[in-house]
Amino acid sequence: MKIISLWSGPRNVSTAFMYSFAQREDTTVIDEPLYAHYLKTTQADHPGKETVLSKMENDGNKVLEVVREKAQNTTILFLKNMCHHWLGFSNKQLEGFDNIFLIRNPKEMLPSLVRQIPRPILRDTGLQQQSEMFNYLWNKGKAPIVIDSQDLLLDNKKILRKVCEAVNIDFTEKMLHWNSGSKPYDGVWAKYWYQNVHKSVGFTPYIKKNDPFPEHLIPLLEECNPFYEHLSKHSFKI
């Protein structure tokens, strides 16, 4: 039994990463199992909030019990998680997962995030929580894998090979491609967030953004940068 947990912030190509692992014959994927728990706990105003709360288990502890049960019935269970959804849990539980941290430069992430959340705060980025989770695991001698989404898009084959090696599974070329369109394992929020990834058949090549950075997001960018820079020092390099 192996549980691989991807810990990401929003707009970090995390859904494409989940699609990649879903192509493996030995792997079952779950999309953001703790999302309803997060929305109930914080009352954050997200697109499709009421649908998420009505369709998913709201009790995070029950969710984790189901996750452990499902892991008994598959060789690899892959969880796509948002870092900020990890609320009210002991970080000790992270030690039962193979943890992968997916990061993205906030200078590129924030302008994308405001399309769904017009007035984001630091909590919405997940970066502070991600940094705290990383520090816990690092201090326990269980340093997690860190991937920068830019590097993943620049050379996804090389990064995925490194990831597979780090979690002791075989890499397969099947992880590089998938069919376009919605997926049966998409979360119920997919219609609000997944429009672009549904058009894809693999990882989209990295394109540097040259648009001016929105002035109203500069204070939040300054909050995000120290956490991103800390995590970036530990990321796989291409």
Rank of each mutant, 00 (worst) to 15 (best):
K158W: 00
K140L: 10
N139A: 03
L79N: 03
E108P: 01
P111N: 05
N139K: 07
W86M: 07
L152P: 01
K140S: 07
P111V: 02
L79A: 03
E57N: 15
N99Q: 07
E65I: 14
S131C: 09
T125F: 00
Q129K: 08
I100C: 08
T74P: 11
L113S: 04
G141D: 03
E132I: 00
Q72I: 13
K70Q: 15
Q150L: 14
F101K: 04
V67A: 06
D155I: 01
N61R: 05
N156H: 06
R115M: 00
N139I: 00
K92A: 14
K162Q: 13
T75M: 06
M109Y: 00
E108S: 09
N91E: 12
K140P: 02
V63C: 06
E132Y: 00
K107Q: 13
T51D: 15
A143V: 05
K142Q: 12
L87R: 10
R119I: 02
L154I: 12
F134S: 09
D148I: 02
C83M: 11
F134E: 11
L153W: 01
V52R: 09
N81L: 12
Q93P: 01
N156A: 00
R115L: 02
A143I: 06
N105R: 11
P111A: 05
M109N: 00
Q72F: 05
R115P: 00
A71M: 08
M82G: 14
E95F: 09
L110H: 10
I147S: 07
K70T: 13
G60N: 08
G60S: 10
L53K: 12
R161E: 12
S112H: 01
D98F: 08
N105A: 07
Q150I: 14
F101R: 04
N105D: 15
K142S: 05
K55C: 09
R161C: 04
V66Q: 14
G60H: 11
G88R: 11
G96K: 10
L122E: 06
R104V: 00
H85W: 12
P106F: 04
N73V: 12
K92M: 11
L110A: 09
S131Y: 10
N61T: 01
I145S: 04
C83Q: 08
L127R: 01
R68F: 13
I121T: 13
V63L: 06
L53Q: 10
R119G: 00
I103G: 02
D151A: 13
L154K: 15
Q150G: 07
L122A: 08
Q93I: 15
Q130W: 00
V66I: 15
L152N: 03
E69T: 14
G60V: 05
R104H: 03
